[in-house]
Design a protein around this nucleic acid. Structure first.
Length: 360
DNA sequence: AAGGCTACCAACCGCCACTTG
DNA sequence: ACAAGTGGCGGTTGGTAGCCT
């Protein structure tokens, strides 16, 4: 915070009820609050402090954050140092305006992960969770509201629905969301597990798929195509004209199926190619799903039904886009891809064009 | 020019999970 | 088994800058 005297009311006086809990904590010998220690600085960091922190970490690594400030000659609490480093000083941070593709990725991921900013940040490696969170709260949330989409559920807002015939559709969306959420969570875990590669780009190693020859992967189940169609539809909702500079292909989920030959249902794995986490998890799940598909569940049924009913959703978003036209916000989102209808048809056939942002 | 309003975002707080002794 | 210590996360705050009236 930028305030210089930020001891909260209630913490500055021993008579405060709020302080009681703090006192209890101190009696227990456990101190978690930075302002408990006298002489610790708070508020904005100076260039000199930044320089000290950066120099120390570059030389020694951060080690224990709690002991770092003393070693680095900083009058800050460890927590504050950690935050400053992670959110601002770290060299591998991309700062500045979010590209439209990044925004698109955030919206997609938020639809399935909710306010789990750290999980979302895994897919935007050079952005911090704090930055993503701020951008969501100040920009993206408002845009979705403008479109008549509830930013929390990512569904058309109830007051925006004109009829009651969409319950089935919404139910299908929920199914899709559950599937996708599970996939993204798995992906985030994978990204953490293999975090030694900061770009989350991985070469396939035998340990990733023990006993599995990547070249022997079985044909791709049809339901995955439908799932992909869902992803592409959401992606399409936020497709932008060519002014999108696309300068930040940071999201590994933007081209999750780069090497999947969709039309034939074959999976091609190139052992010399760098695969994203998304791709690896995707292939992993394909194999799992094969088993499931032997015995269709309500979810898989919903997945296939979904594709014949999704035009309504697209219509709603398109309508929102029309309403949005003339908005003062120059970078307002919107636009359903012209190819949406054909995509929907092809998806229901088990094949569909690879998304624009996919690799050839 | 001045005051009010709004958007932005760095930094903080409180909580929780995990680790350590 | 338990308490203390630590790191990490999501929610929130409030100073600053820029725009509007």
């Amino acid at each position: 915070m930028h305030g210089q005297n930020l001891i909260k009311p209630g913490l500055e006086s021993s008579s405060s009820p709020t302080l009681c809990s703090t006192q209890i904590v101190l009696i227990m010998g456990r101190s978690t609050l930075c302002y408990e220690k006298e002489g610790l600085k708070r508020g904005p960091w100076t260039a000199e402090e930044d320089q000290k922190l950066t120099a120390y970490i570059q030389q020694h690594g951060h080690g224990s954050w709690s002991s770092l400030p003393e070693k680095a000659g900083l009058k800050r609490c460890g927590k504050s140092c950690r935050l400053r480093w992670i959110n601002y000083l770290r060299p591998d941070i991309k700062r500045g305006k979010f590209s439209l593709r990044e925004e698109q990725t955030i919206i997609q991921l938020h639809a399935f992960l909710g306010n789990r900013w750290s999980a979302i940040a895994v897919h935007l490696p050079k952005r911090t969770d704090n930055e993503i969170k701020n951008h969501w709260n100040t920009h993206l949330k408002k845009r979705l509201i403008k479109m008549g989409i509830d930013p929390m559920t990512h569904k058309p807002r109830i007051d925006a629905l004109s009829s009651s015939g969409h319950e089935c559709h919404n139910s299908n969306l929920n199914h899709m969301a559950q599937w996708e959420r599970a996939r993204l969570e798995a992906e985030a875990r994978e990204a953490g597990r293999y975090s030694s590669n900061k770009q989350a780009l991985l070469r396939i190693q035998p340990k990733i798929h023990p006993g599995t020859d990547p070249l022997s992967l079985k044909p791709r189940p049809k339901c995955i195509d439908v799932l992909k169609a869902w992803q592409d539809m959401v992606t399409g909702m936020f497709n932008f004209p060519s002014r999108d500079n696309l300068d930040s292909p940071t999201s590994i989920s933007n081209s999750p199926n780069a090497l999947v030959q969709v039309s034939t249902g074959e999976t091609i794995v190139d052992p010399n190619h760098l695969y994203t986490c998304n791709e690896l998890v995707y292939m992993d799940q394909m194999q799992e799903l094969e088993g499931w598909m032997d015995e269709p569940t309500s979810s898989t049924v919903a997945l296939t039904q979904y594709t014949t009913e999704n035009l309504w959703f697209a219509d709603n978003v398109a309508a929102a886009a029309d309403l949005n036209e003339g908005s003062s916000e120059s970078d307002t989102l919107i636009g359903i891809p012209v190819s949406f209808s054909s995509m929907e048809v092809e998806a229901s056939n088990g094949s569909y064009p690879i998304a624009n942002n996919g690799q050839p």
